[in-house]
C-alpha cells in the first residue's frame, strides 16, 4: 500500500517543543507523543503530522483546550507537554 504524501514533519527539529509551550491561538503539527497516556493520546488523534491549535489556556496554570481533527479536547499541562510539536508559522 502506498503512503500518502505528507508534508515533511519535524525533520529539522529546530522549532520543536511540547504542546504546552504554545500560546493561545498558535498552531502546530504533532511530531511524536510520549508519557503514560501515549496510546490514548494517539487514539484521540495526536498522530504524526496532525495539525493542532491551542484554543485557550485556563487561568492559574490550569488545563489547555486544544483543537484537532475538528473537535476540542482539554488536557493538563503535563499531558500537553508529552506531545512534541513543531510550530506552524
Amino acid at each position: 500500500m502506498k503512503k500518502e504524501p505528507r508534508p515533511p514533519v519535524c525533520a529539522l527539529g529546530l522549532t520543536e517543543c511540547g504542546l504546552d509551550c504554545l500560546g493561545r491561538g498558535q498552531k502546530a503539527r504533532v511530531c511524536r507523543v510520549a508519557g503514560p497516556n501515549r496510546q490514548r493520546l494517539m487514539e484521540l488523534g495526536f498522530t504524526q503530522g496532525t495539525e493542532v491549535e491551542v484554543a485557550r489556556r485556563a487561568a492559574f496554570g490550569g488545563p489547555l483546550e486544544v483543537r484537532l481533527r475538528s473537535y476540542r479536547l482539554s488536557l493538563r499541562k503535563d499531558e500537553a507537554g508529552a506531545i512534541q510539536v513543531e510550530a506552524v508559522s
Partner: peptide, 9 residues
C-alpha cells in the same frame, strides 16, 4: 502522581 485529565468539550 498527578492523574491524567483528558476531557472532550
Amino acid at each position: 502522581e498527578a492523574p491524567t485529565f483528558l476531557l472532550e468539550m
